[in-house]
Design a protein around this nucleic acid. Structure first.
Ligand code: FES
Ligand code: FES
Lengths: 141, 141
DNA sequence: TATAAACCTGACTAAAATAGTCAAGTATCA
DNA sequence: TGATACTTGACTATTTTAGTCAGGTTTATA
């Protein structure tokens, strides 16, 4: 089980953005330089974040991105959802009554993986961008 | 983030094994048929489980595998560890003081991913094979 | 009004990981 | 002595990841 770079970068970039997002939009170029993430890759990521209304874009010179809601109202779940970083513990379709290997019933461990998925998702539902920014400035003291 | 088939199969197979493991060893062929997992793949998996002393093998006709410890003493952690299904939320080396993209310090989100990793691993540390077998027979009532 | 900064879009690709298969054994029971 | 079942190691197709690349459009400001 591993977290992909896309998901990790999305959160990293948003924490960076949230810290500098006062009045002026923050450019991807700045984030790219500060966080060491490829600019082209960031553009892919922010395109998705924008479509899911997590950030707003400001075009033109001096443009950049701004948070579209308050940091405390942006949960990790929202971010991961936006960039398609989803937790997947099973192969079988959840809706379907069929099991993993085309079997007619759910397998012996299906319930376990469901629990696991919930366990992980709960973590993502609780953490907000605000928490992360705070965590970070506290550590700095 | 997703769980690989190898990890899922390992647990599936062991739950199956634990249920039938009374006096006689259980053959991979039986597990393969019951669970719909390729025999060759199961062999790879059990080879690892044996090396980590989670199961014992009995060669020859009527041979198969037997649990090497009590079901309640086999945790998910042990199983995943044996088959190299590890939780990895970061790229950076944990021991090193360096950050993800070759930076000299840990990044803004490093601490978060550490928390996440622990959160997930805690789940694995708690669940034992016995729990899974019980869960399953209860559901059957 | 020209120019540069910054967003925007879609296609492309190298490398890694996954999910197996395949082949050729060895051990043991009946 | 045959059948069953474990043992080992190499091999491979497919998918996913982690980007790159090329070519735009928009807008502030000098
Ligand atoms: S995991 Fe859903 S049926 Fe096996
Ligand atoms: S995750 Fe460890 S430094 Fe970024």
């Amino acid at each position: 089980m591993k977290l992909t770079s896309k998901g990790r970068y999305a959160v990293m970039a948003l924490v960076d953005l949230a810290r500098f997002d006062n009045i002026n939009p923050v450019s991807l170029r700045d984030i790219s330089l500060r966080q060491g993430i490829s600019l082209d890759y960031l553009e892919q990521i922010f395109s998705k974040l924008r479509k899911k209304e997590i950030v707003q874009s400001v075009r033109g010179t001096q443009g950049g991105y701004v948070l579209n809601r308050k940091a405390k109202d942006i949960k990790l779940t929202n971010i991961f959802d936006a960039v398609d970083e989803k937790v997947k513990t099973v192969q079988c379709k959840k809706e379907s009554k069929k099991g993993c290997n085309g079997k007619s019933t759910k397998c012996l461990t299906h319930n376990l993986w469901d629990e696991l998925e919930n366990h992980i998702n709960n973590f993502f539902k609780e953490k907000s961008l605000e928490d992360l920014v705070k965590d970070n400035s506290e550590r700095r003291l």
